[in-house]
Write a protein that binds this DNA or RNA. Sequence first.
DNA 1: TTACTTAACTGACCTAGTCCAGAGGAAATG
DNA 2: CATTTCCTCTGGACTAGGTCAGTTAAGTAA
Lengths: 239, 239
Amino acid sequence: MENTQATQLSRIQESLRQLLAKNVLHGSQKLPSERALSVLFSTTRITLKEALSALEIEGVIYRESRRGWFVCPARLIYNPLSRCHFHQLVNDQQRNAKTQVLAVHTQFADAQQSKLLGLAKRSEIYCIERLRYVDNRPVLYVQNCLISALFPNILKQDLSQSLTQLYQQQYGYQTLRSRFEVTLCGANKQVADALHLAQGQQVLKICRVNYQQQGTIIDCEFEYWRPDAVIITIDSHEG
Amino acid sequence: MENTQATQLSRIQESLRQLLAKNVLHGSQKLPSERALSVLFSTTRITLKEALSALEIEGVIYRESRRGWFVCPARLIYNPLSRCHFHQLVNDQQRNAKTQVLAVHTQFADAQQSKLLGLAKRSEIYCIERLRYVDNRPVLYVQNCLISALFPNILKQDLSQSLTQLYQQQYGYQTLRSRFEVTLCGANKQVADALHLAQGQQVLKICRVNYQQQGTIIDCEFEYWRPDAVIITIDSHEG
DNA sequence: TTACTTAACTGACCTAGTCCAGAGGAAATG
DNA sequence: CATTTCCTCTGGACTAGGTCAGTTAAGTAA
């Protein structure tokens, strides 16, 4: 704001911001290529890339690996404490939701999983990996880990719907309490590919453990969000 | 993990990781300079910088603007729902806390502030800007905004202590409910300087509104955390 | 002792390119 | 009509430097 001496970088950023202000047409609009922009601003691709990265940090634009740069649509307001499931949450914000089941498998719990689930190492669990879209843009990669003994035949159900709902309707488990951690980390190949990121790009990770009526654990969940796609809100009343 | 073909970047990262593994001496240890490292790995400064940035995203190292790169100490586990104040929180995790009052002033609420506080625009508020340290490292820039009418003479108190405690002991206001938002954004000059970041580097922003017994607003708070310094945890039980 | 100056060192910022691999559409092929 | 092949466009990864502006510590003068 004050004393912003017109460095090349900030000049490019300002120009891009103005360029974006005009193109308010639709979110997810594609920007010109890095090469084209570097010519337009008569600078190097490296410098231009830095300007784009800065705007990415601000949450104004986002990138898709080898696909280009796009204008950020409005963020999803996400309250991890609310019992509201994904599709309802998205619809309530006048957006379009889609869930794709990527993989489903039975495996032995690794260190992190068995710790969160309070299991002995090498206990058998079900893993459900799903990709969630908002307005056709992949924004969330989720892995649900459930203790297989508690959920007979669940892998035969339709897993593209809300799992919370499935737990309650088919098995009578209700989530009454949840604990979670929010961190930033780099995306591994699996997550990066699904979210159209480059490997190592930043994602918002939420590790969550859900407890049922009796205080016993239902499942744990690893959510990997595109950091530009979401705002997390918490209200202590809704806890 | 799988099929990570040895690209230059990943080779540097791996070497640095091993280098870090040896230097477990003390957190906050300084790395050699970018120039020295680029010679050591026989690569360019740009490439090396990218490797460092990737490790920064992973939360392994952090940078201080024009001061160098350092090994990340253990993160602070922070539960924004708990009533626990900063110094206690930090001490409970066997760390050393310090609070520095940067500025205190009376002003008219801007758009964001008056919206959060539920005030008419241009109402008078007090703003308290403070910098919090963990083990002598600045990790949190906080701005508290209070409705001046509710807090007569508060600016004359010792503001380096817990404000929550001050509210309760001097004014009888108790925080019974709080709402907050977690986002990522770029640091402005003020925040960047205080946290030893470069302007535009990423910070974790938490906007919080505190309510007292009767459900009326006590204050709102803007927290800017070094993203590498903290893990946010929430337990719905403690809400 | 205290204040000021200086000089070395640091990351931040910048130029000017090359080569590579994935994405995606168009054309050729079965 | 469906599949595959190919070619173009994209960002990702890399080289090889230079300049600029804060940080810091050592040295110097009051």
